[in-house]
Design a binder for these strands. Structure first.
Lengths: 207, 207
DNA sequence: CGGACTCTGGACTTGAGGGTCCAATCCGGG
DNA sequence: CCCGGATTGGACCCTCAAGTCCAGAGTCCG
């Protein structure tokens, strides 16, 4: 399918409109009609740009949202090279999800995909991978400059921290409370400090 | 609605059959027909026992599964009174979710509920609460016998650990890998050990 | 027994919404 | 200008599954 400038713009408009719609009201009740109304497009356009129908659109939205998840954490996530950066990243994550509130567009989009499950999984997997890689890079850097214990397995630590964040977000989605996310981040980062027996207590945070 | 012994049995059969169906193929593609086929019931029975229709059935399934989640972790979760108990609990959680694999019946059931969202949220919230309470109780006991540092905030630590478990499970659902769940559990429990500077290294686990 | 329920089968209605089609229009390049 | 492909509108179809209904069978209790 060849796209003129105009066509590409329309396609993008559809993706973004669908993403908004999902953020507003969830994926489960998302109808093509809603997207059409919000983006001022007709059904033929939807199927013109997404021949695979709803699944293909959802997949495009998932990709779009996955990119946003990482972008929203920049620049902190990309350069976790000081204690300050770590705490700023922590605050940014909390703020982002607090603002987003009830709907995790990516997560719901991925769950909904029926036929296109494999492709959706791939999107989610790649997102998690990139996220974890950046955390691991940050951990390694901190080890390098002697702020984190050298004996930590950076990848495994990153995996655990990421799991905490994901779980915190999930609990936020179901209960509306942000304490779990905060606790997971604070404890996760605190754990990276390693067993220092009271030294560097200044780095700990009050709850 | 009054139920005879027979009626109650049928109702329970429907709930369990629906739960199985969901575990097999997910909630999103769940049709009442599937439940009818699996449980050898007719549509009139479904609506007889669940006048609220699909939503009410889903809610019943969610309750049923929520109870299972806790039960499957017993007796360990209920008496986290020694290091051994903690590690056995850890192994049980990993084993349970490894076996369950791709579908988290509760989580998907909760997400699907449209109209009955509030009720569904309440079920999930209560499950998380009970889970966290038992973890916190375990932490307090370990503090009492001097195995965990007294200065830890038991509730907050339990929240962080629970978030890690939830996130690990979620990542398992989307990537199929169990490493994140293991990492979150191992590091979460290790964190509870507190900063001991090399002492009690025997309690640490190889990865 | 026998009456009044609960329980069950299965045909029927309904509506929503995804997907198809074709004709009209726009637009860039030659 | 003019052609061909890109773009658009909107009517149409069609499947699928939730929910309704009623008649008949079972079951409990006096």
């Amino acid at each position: 399918m060849l796209l003129t400038r105009k066509g590409a713009a329309t396609k993008q408009r559809i993706i973004e409109g669908a993403a908004e719609e999902i953020r507003d009201q969830g994926v489960f009740s998302l109808r093509l009609e809603d997207v059409m109304a919000r983006t001022a497009t007709s059904k033929s356009q939807l199927f013109h740009y997404f021949p695979g129908g709803k699944d293909e659109l959802l997949l495009a939205v998932a990709r779009y949202e996955a990119a946003r998840v990482i972008d929203d954490q920049q620049p902190e996530l990309g350069s976790l090279t000081s204690w300050d950066a770590w705490w700023q990243w922590r605050d940014k994550v909390v703020a982002r999800y607090r603002a987003q509130g009830e709907n995790c567009p990516l997560h719901t989009a991925v769950s909904q995909l029926g036929a296109a499950t494999d492709a959706a999984r791939a999107v989610a997997r790649e997102l998690l991978q990139r996220w974890q890689d950046q955390l691991a890079a940050g951990i390694r850097h901190m080890q390098h400059i002697g702020e984190f214990p050298a004996e930590l397995d950076a990848d495994r630590e990153a995996a655990a921290l990421l799991a905490g964040v994901q779980g915190g977000v999930m609990i936020l989605l179901t209960t509306g409370g942000i304490e779990h996310l905060e606790a997971a981040l604070d404890r996760g980062i605190a754990h990276l400090r390693g067993p220092r027996c009271g030294a560097r207590a200044a780095y700990s945070r009050s709850t």
